[in-house]
Amino acid sequence: MVEELITSGRLTPEVDPILHIWGWEIPLYLFLGGFAAGILFFSALFTLQNKENRYPMAVKILPFAVPVLLAIGLGALFLDLSHKFYFWQLYTNIRWESPMSWGAWTLLLVTPLSIVWAASWLEEAFPKFDLRYNWLKEILSDLKPYRKHMAWALIILAVILGMYTGILLSAFNARPFWNSAIMGPLFLTSGLSTAAASVTLLTRNQEERSDFTKIDLLLIAIELFFIIHMFMGFLASTQVHVQAAELFLGGKFTVPFWVWVVGIGLTIPAILEILELRKHHVPIFVSAVLVIAGSVMLRFIVVEAGQASRWLY
């Protein structure tokens, strides 16, 4: 028997017996960031492909949600900070090695750009909406010629933002479960899938819905591939990684992860989507809601599990 006894105040709040520095705020922030990235990605992509009229929801309308999502995400991040009034220090430094830093900077760039981006679609997205001020209208119409430029920038930023939500975690060597190169692509895919699912949920355009359902199916498949790949990676790695994986293979995260994320958040919606594409009669919103919920769960579980995994010595 090996007995390890830690004495002396080592019941440090939020650190012992397992790390729990991050509660709901960070996973929510990661989810919203990824979601926003997904929306921007599709919007920009299909603008570049001149498909704005084929995919009105994805290109023109959903971007209006982005500033709101980002604001809530940033709000959550802010709430999580324990030394809040020094928040501004984030923007007096650029630290390339720190995902937290470039995430903050990316957000600083993405947020205003996303507002401008959405605004540039205002007229087309909401034709009945009257802006009242002429000078505003003028500005907005001046923006339109720059859409392609903005779209290029947005695609890049969206990928960065989407990856960042995963890389923030995977950069932590110290937490074996987070420490997987798959985390970035996985979170990016998940963010895209959330965006795609929300398009299928909200659009009234049949074509847009079925195209995005296909896209979503593809993304779900990629996600499942990443997840399996990630666990195989862990199991083939060092003992600490094996132990980290074991949290999900019989450990305390087994049920939440495999049932809620993989089962209800990915597999079931995938099946529903396939059925839908084969013209079976299924309520369309179910799969979309499940995908979104699964994506939320994924962030929560990954953030929680990473904190519970540790090095042994």
Partner: peptide, 16 residues
């Protein structure tokens, strides 16, 4: 005076 309390450093320390 520079710390914002983001706790990234805590998460990154293998020794807690």
């Amino acid at each position: 005076e520079e710390c914002i309390g983001c706790k990234a450093c805590i998460a990154s320390c293998p020794y807690d």
